[in-house]
């Protein structure tokens, strides 16, 4: 019954580490989602909404295409 996530890879973990080892909880707080959701995004189990994807990119000061890549 679980929805298969679309083939999207991301560099969230890499960008977090490059930005002063930002914690998953801090990133979650910055974009209004829980730490568990950040973990799920990093592991590719969950694709965030467009709004959250833009917010993540904004937090790291990069474009959305620098964070998420379509692998399809």
């Amino acid at each position: 019954m679980t929805k298969r996530p679309p083939p999207i890879s991301n560099r969230v973990r890499e960008l977090r580490e490059a930005n002063g080892n930002m914690s998953q909880a801090s990133l979650g707080e910055a974009i209004d989602v829980t730490r568990q959701t950040i973990i799920a995004i990093e592991q590719g189990h969950y694709s965030p909404s467009l709004e959250s994807a833009f917010r993540i990119a904004q937090v790291f000061g990069v474009g959305i295409e620098d964070v998420f890549t379509w692998e399809g």
């Binding site: 019954m1 679980t2 707080e29 209004d32 989602v33 829980t34 568990q36 959701t37 799920a40 969950y46 965030p48 909404s49 959250s52």
Partner: peptide
């Protein structure tokens, strides 16, 4: 208090649980 509200992923899961 934000942690007590479901975020977008949890809302999606809650919708599926309602379906079940």
């Amino acid at each position: 208090s934000k942690l007590n509200m479901p975020d977008e992923r949890e809302e999606e899961i809650l919708l599926r649980t309602e379906q079940i």
